[in-house]
Simulated assay, not measured.
Amino acid sequence: MSSIQAKNLTLSYGQKEIFNQLDLLVPSGQITVLIGSNGCGKSTLLRSLARLLKPQEGSILLDGTEIAKLSSKEIARRLAILPQGPLAPEGLTVHQLVKQGRYPYQSWLQQWTREDERMVNRALEVTHMKELSSLSIDSLSGGQRQRAWIAMTLAQNTPTILLDEPTTYLDMSHQIEILDLLFDLNGQEKRTIVMVLHDINLACRYADHIVAVKDGHIHAQGKPEVIMTEQLIREVFGMACQMTVDPIFGTPLCIPHGKGRSLKDSHSK
């Protein structure tokens, strides 16, 4: 299992400071979900954990080593990141895309191996993309494309996977399909998974650990059943709600206040 930690982290975009002196410890072998309102810095924080954004101050530790001191290939062997809305070159097939995940293991001395082929085939099988491997990425549905990109990250065979809003633009059935896949990967292989999600209820259903971000700091973090309260939703999202228990999964369920059909029906009587 892999560990990732931020210490005294200060991040900025241009002149705008996003986080100041932030500390974060991601639990190893668990699913951590970052939540918060739009623009609160969730994606910025995720990108910094993958060394895609250089901090002004502080450090990111990967398995106890400062990530800034590691080579790009060494990081890519330990950590895979799937950004939001990735784009593939036109005409690239699923198989060709997934093979890109083996790049960190290639060198002048070590070219394509049986192990590389095994990891690519395994990633295609786990994501149920084997039968679609010869198709171009352009021809796939949204859910299939997302599975193809996840297959690429799996081919990297890293202990840690970071995903920025992996369910964006997908319909409900494909959202559940993707999250179930990640849930199984975590349960069966103890991969450390960190992802940004907008849907509060899906975050509660799939996360072992939730980090609620607000105004450049961590407002709360912990197990969903402990921290996800009506007060937290009001403070982080500015929304009134009722928290109850999901009747199927037993996880926290957020029911937002607002106008709905029952109110419309009462007005029509």
Results as ranks from 00 to 15, higher is better:
C40H: 05
G36D: 09
I81C: 05
E66I: 00
L45N: 07
L53I: 14
L52V: 00
E66P: 12
K73R: 14
S28H: 02
D63A: 10
P83S: 04
L46N: 06
I81L: 14
K42D: 00
I60S: 11
S28N: 11
G58C: 05
D63E: 15
I31E: 12
I81T: 02
L79G: 05
G64Q: 10
S37M: 04
L62I: 02
T44I: 08
V33L: 09
L82H: 08
A80D: 04
G36T: 07
P55L: 08
Q30H: 14
L49S: 12
G36V: 04
I75F: 02
A80V: 00
L62V: 09
G29Y: 08
Q84N: 10
P83L: 07
G36A: 07
V33F: 10
L45E: 08
I81W: 04
L79P: 11
S28G: 10
L62Q: 09
V33Y: 10
G58F: 11
I60M: 11
L45S: 11
L61E: 14
G36P: 09
L79Q: 03
I67G: 06
I60P: 13
S37P: 04
K73V: 00
S59P: 00
L46C: 05
I35Y: 02
R78I: 00
R78F: 02
T65M: 13
G41D: 09
E57R: 15
G64D: 05
K54N: 13
G39N: 02
P83N: 06
R77Y: 00
I81Q: 06
K69T: 14
L82I: 14
E66W: 01
I31Y: 12
L46E: 06
G29A: 08
Q30D: 13
I67M: 13
V33I: 15
Q56F: 03
G39A: 05
L79S: 01
K69G: 02
S48R: 05
G41T: 06
L49F: 12
P55V: 05
E66V: 02
I60N: 13
I81R: 03
Q84I: 01
A76Q: 02
P55M: 09
S72K: 14
L45P: 06
N38D: 04
L61C: 08
L53F: 02
I75G: 03
A80T: 01
L46Y: 09
L61I: 08
S48A: 15
R47K: 15
Q30V: 04
E66C: 10
E57H: 14
T44E: 05
L52W: 13
E57T: 11
V33C: 14
G36M: 01
Q84T: 07
T32K: 12
R77V: 00
D63F: 01
A50R: 01
K54V: 12
I60R: 12
L53E: 13
G36Q: 09
V33P: 08
G39E: 06
S72M: 11
A68K: 14
L45W: 05
S43Q: 09
S72C: 09
P55S: 11
Q84R: 11
G58I: 04
V33R: 11
Q30A: 14
T32G: 09
S71P: 08
G36I: 01
R47G: 08
P55E: 10
G39F: 07
I31F: 13
L61R: 05
L82V: 14
I67D: 07
